[in-house]
Nucleic acid binder design. Structure first.
Lengths: 341, 341
DNA sequence: TTGTATGCGTTATCAT
DNA sequence: ATGATAACGCATACAA
């Protein structure tokens, strides 16, 4: 048995599909009475409008493409949730894809979204990505793209980023105030904006305090494992007395390495992370870290997209929105004897 | 400038759209040479097939609807990720909706998926939901529905559930072996299958050990806050010496309540949770809990849906797949003096 | 206020 | 191997 269409409704009411279409759309140029008859009939027949046909005809879609490295990462799943909070009430739905941090999959996903004729795209790039052609191409095909968190200026359109610079600056300054001075920075690829910005914040704070950091920055130490390895090495060499890790996972590895060397956190060594992963407040010692507001970011990204779709933003306009972050001071950086004001 | 269509390609090649369509579809009844010419031209013109038109014409869609209570819950985001792992390679994409644990939103989301003519639906019900008409209606409209985790038998089609009964049984038995006997059970609504099953496992273990539990089961104590409240009350009344909580969040609240009463976990009171939330291994004491395999569940759900779409399962067939769970024994239930074999 | 006619981009059927 | 034609379900310009 086929699904009921406006044609079925029209027939059973002795009117034409056009009238049914108008009635259902709430068009004013249809009499009150027929509108009611149509609505009742539609309900009675269990009519569900065919959005696919409607989209094709209208030449526009109600679905927004969302592309993230991984759905199941705390930060991203919260951004997605926040985006939905804005987009659903606005009549949009989300077609969600993952890149799994791979450029190739990112491009494939982008193609899928384009083929599905999404009304717009909200995305965060894979770590790996250095070629942003596909995303730019999307904008050239009139599909607005909003980037968040991991963004690139080569792609036109709004960018929503965390205040990575300030977060890192606050973190490192906090360590310095705590009396730490040989502060290592474990981070990911500096080709990625979030890490380069955090690195910039780190440098700024170190320079401001006239501290040396020439040999203390380490790319490729961003997972729990790589963080552990690098930290173990540094602690053994007695080269550092604190760590500013560009992510919380590396911080966990770092703390473990410090403990494995028989030293204490924060008494002997301070550790500050970035992201405030769910476990950050639970581990021992509780991790001082920079909190990112995923909800705020998601809301802003969604609203930015709605503005672009609504034509309220020049397409070529290069707009970057910075979401404030907070330093959450916990145990891993607080020496009891030091006054952290 | 409009997007290029097969008509554009046809024109620029001096052939008809039909041939282009066939060539692009890899149809064998088109000459090798024209196929190549078409493919090259398509690439050159930056052609992206219009899936919307294609879906309308073919009468079928490549998108699967996914409906979960909350995207940003660890368990669900991992199930989603696992579903994608199976569905993407099979040529499907995910349209994702959240119910936010509200029946009304669940029904709205279901409507949205139906209107979008998804090829199938994978869903887990909101806690609140007691009326499953809408989901059943979907199946009646020939949209196959696969339920996972929070399922209901009124909805035809495959159901993938965790082995909640066994998990609960193992958890409680483990507490009993550890020497605990007055074991309270904090849980959610017993109208939800996951909680009723865990309750059944709890009862079975208690009865087996001839332990009394008449006044020890408490619905509506499933969040950190409600768990804390109920546990505080019970501990103060000296009525229990252990807790089996139907969720990890309640366990955290429970542990906090026990500590606030000046007692120790596990020395004075044992606590076992359910779900193995990411923080479970990080908190102090580390939480003994039942691990759910979200990936396994997602894979099974996706495969089940593919089978139904492929017609490999009778529509009316009532099939339930049970995913095994594991008890992760950690500190919160291990009295040093007791041998837990 | 309602009907008529047309097209969105694609694919399937039939013919050549 | 290719072309001509129609149809998927809906929305709109135009006519009445």
């Amino acid at each position: 048995m086929k699904r009921t269409t406006i044609i079925d409704i029209a027939r059973s009411l002795g009117i034409t599909p056009s009238t049914v279409s108008r009635a259902l759309a709430g068009n004013l140029r249809v009499s009150e009475s027929t509108r009611k008859r149509v609505q009742e009939k539609a309900l009675e027949m269990g009519y569900q409008p065919n959005i696919v046909a409607s989209s094709l005809r209208r030449g526009k879609s109600d679905t927004i493409g969302m592309l993230v490295p991984r759905i199941n990462r705390h930060f991203f799943s919260h951004v997605i949730s926040a985006v939905e909070e804005i987009l659903n009430p606005a009549g949009y739905n989300l077609l969600i894809c993952q890149s799994h941090e791979k450029s190739e999959l990112e491009n494939q996903a982008l193609q899928v979204l384009l083929k599905n004729r999404v009304a717009g795209i909200i995305m965060s790039h894979a770590m790996e990505t250095v070629d942003f052609e596909m995303a730019r191409k999307a904008t050239e095909e009139r599909v607005p793209v909003v980037q968040f968190d991991r963004v690139n200026k080569e792609v036109p359109g709004p960018r929503i980023v965390n205040d990575n610079f300030s977060g890192a600056y606050m973190a490192v300054k906090h360590l310095i105030r705590g009396g730490y001075s040989r502060i290592a920075h474990l981070t990911g690829s500096l080709g990625v904006n979030v890490y380069s910005e955090r690195h910039r914040g780190y440098r700024y704070a170190m320079e401001e305090a006239s501290l040396d950091f020439d040999e203390l920055v380490f790319e490729g130490a961003i997972t729990r494992e790589t963080g552990y390895e690098k930290a173990l090495q540094l602690v053994k060499q007695h080269r550092v007395d604190a760590f500013f890790c560009a992510g919380d996972f590396a911080s966990v590895g770092t703390i473990q390495a410090i403990h494995d060397c028989g030293l204490r956190v924060p008494e002997d060594m301070g550790v500050v992370g970035f992201a405030n992963e769910p476990f950050a407040g639970f581990i021992t010692p509780q991790l001082t870290t920079v909190e990112q507001n995923a909800y705020d970011m998601g809301h802003r990204a969604a609203n930015a997209l709605i503005r672009v779709i609504g034509g309220q933003i020049m397409t070529g306009m290069d707009q970057e929105e910075v979401v404030p972050v907070r330093l959450l001071v916990r145990e891993s950086s607080m020496r009891a004897t030091v006054n952290n004001k």
